[in-house]
Design a protein around this nucleic acid. Structure first.
Lengths: 341, 341
DNA sequence: TGCCCATTCCAAAGCGCTTTGGCAAGCTGT
DNA sequence: ACAGCTTGCCAAAGCGCTTTGGAATGGGCA
């Protein structure tokens, strides 16, 4: 059933049917009611492509997900972020298009998406330091928002970010206040902006506490469970092992926990673990009482809010850029405790 | 830059430009080369919507993801599955549209996607027993494939599934052969078809070994880490606790591991854990040597293959249905061992 | 009654592409 | 030299919608 058929069936012009369905005022309420009833009855939904052609926009949002460095890793936060964003899009009548792409080809994909008129806006994920995608997107003139920030960017852009620096500053302070002096940092890949900021927060707190920043207990990498395990194992076998671990993801933290277990060390007693927690739906940390002491911020909520920011931006592309910075919430869990002497 | 402009710029009709770009033979190779060069130079990509309107298909695949029962949980396999599917789509020139929807509204979404002409095909996720979405999709006449199977379905459909029954049969046999007689099953939600089959495999192996199937050590639910932990804790506190756990997901298995840890039990020595392993990229189980004894099957590979099946089906919708059944691979890990006496 | 203005509707153009049906050359074979 | 191809190109229709610019209809008012 298309517009023409529906209008013929109603004995009304296509114009009127279209207007009735789109809420234009030039239609009597009686006619509108008739039209809507008939549309429902026949399960009519306007053809997306025709509608898009006529209006010039697609009512579709693009998410371009780059492969990790290894070309294999899928960011575990992906699902929850999308779930949040998806809710917003559904509420605003947008579709969501996901494109995965090898790192380095993003700019090309952006350009093509724009040229094809496939999307009305884009969400940029996992910004790196001085990210080269930013100028490309700006130049394209396609509305976009960024999940995270890119230090060193020269053009303004809208973003939603967690205050990673303060989160790691606070987590480090928590550990130092418990007496820990040798605190390992298992960070994400430090070409990613959030990891840089986390490191800065950590380093600043260490220095404020008069503690040395020791590169031998600081690592970066893709945040898998095994990454947490391997690095923790290595460090636990050092002559002077860390007494606390500050970890960038709850998935890694699980790996660290496994390492402690292997070494017969109890988290929160022998060794402390603090972690960032994205509130992943399948790895909740607050069910009864939190397993991990953590800095929490829901990535699902971030998805929903960022999507909303993008929708607003599409509706008014000339509006000033929006910057949203969320503070992660400190949650005391069972994985940290005073240092043993 | 659109077709009209490009053709004007080349001094050639739109017809010829279109044909040159789409590989039709009615164009001299000299002209084709000129056209392609100009298209690249100006970064011309045909407008997706216009192309779709004219051809009648969207070159877009829909994935409709239902919320879990709780309305919160995002399936952790989602990201890896999408990554695999995305590769296939990219290679075949398809876009990927993701729609999240509350459980129960799927049929409506399917209908609407079809009516709007938004997608050329659909992937159905997480089929339930005698799933009501199946007849809806069949009736719609939109090409679709299923990730998993639906027992009791009366109409034929194409699917890719893991042989969950044999996987759990084999895993259970492994445990019984180690002398375990009291084996807990931490299953996924048993309205989902795969969970039913897993249970059947488990029950069959138990019966074959002459062991009782005891509902008090069998649970079902959303496969979170905490689900694994809570249920393992409960069971470990039983008067006659299980000596082995068979778990439906590596995420849950991590939770079980944590429970053992809490009770000062060593996996593979005091208590065994075997699990299904989807080869999630952020939770690899085979890095050096497998942590968990597992039945492995890559969900990313499943995504890629299933997507390919769908593309084929779209190209020839009348072809007989394809059934792909993968056997999970047994991997001996450190989490199982002979029963202690 | 006649005029004007809302109200309500419509015909047709246009969005950017593909595709049908044809036409003009340039070849072939006789 | 000419019919009959093939080759290479084009004009125009059409995909299903929105939107512009009118055009009827009917009520209010002088």
């Amino acid at each position: 059933m298309n517009l023409k058929e529906l209008s013929k069936h109603l004995g009304i012009s296509q114009t009127t049917v279209s207007r009735a369905l789109n809420g234009y005022p030039e239609v009597s309420e009686a006619t509108r009611a008739r039209v809507i009833a008939a549309a429902n009855e026949h399960g009519y939904s306007p053809n997306t492509r025709a509608q898009g052609l006529a209006t010039g926009h697609s009512r579709c949002i693009g998410h371009v997900i780059s492969e990790g460095d290894s070309g294999e890793m899928v960011n575990p936060i992906f699902g929850d972020f999308m779930a949040g964003a998806g809710e917003t899009y559904a509420a605003h009548g947008y579709d969501m298009m996901v494109t995965r792409v090898g790192q380095g080809d993003e700019a090309d994909i952006y350009r093509r998406l724009k040229a094809r008129g496939a999307v009305d806006g884009l969400v940029m994920h996992a910004p790196r330091f001085d990210d080269s995608r930013l100028p490309v997107l700006t130049e394209l003139g396609l509305p976009f928002v960024v999940h995270g920030r890119s230090s060193g960017a020269s053009t303004p852009y809208s973003y939603l970010d967690v205050n990673n620096r303060s989160a790691f500053h606070e987590a480090t302070q928590h550990l130092t206040s418990l007496g820990h002096r040798r605190i390992a940092l298992l960070n994400g890949q430090e070409q990613l902006d959030f990891a840089i900021r986390r490191r800065q927060g950590y380093e600043q707190a260490m220095e404020e506490a008069g503690l040395p920043v020791d590169p031998t207990v600081m690592t970066q990498g893709e945040m898998t469970e095994d990454y947490g395990y391997q690095n923790a194992m290595t460090m636990l076998d050092m002559p002077e092992p860390p007494t606390a671990f500050l970890v960038s993801s709850i998935i890694c933290a699980a790996g660290v926990r496994r390492a402690l277990d292997d070494r017969n060390l109890r988290p929160g007693e022998d060794v402390s673990i603090a972690t960032f927690d994205d509130c992943l739906s399948y790895f909740r940390n607050s069910a009864a009482q939190p397993v991990f002491t953590a800095m929490q911020s829901s990535v699902r909520a971030a998805g929903a809010t960022l999507a909303r920011m993008l929708v607003d931006r599409i509706n008014d592309p000339t509006a000033p850029h929006t910057h949203t910075l969320w503070e992660a919430e400190f949650v005391a869990g069972a994985s940290t405790g005073p240092i043993k002497d």
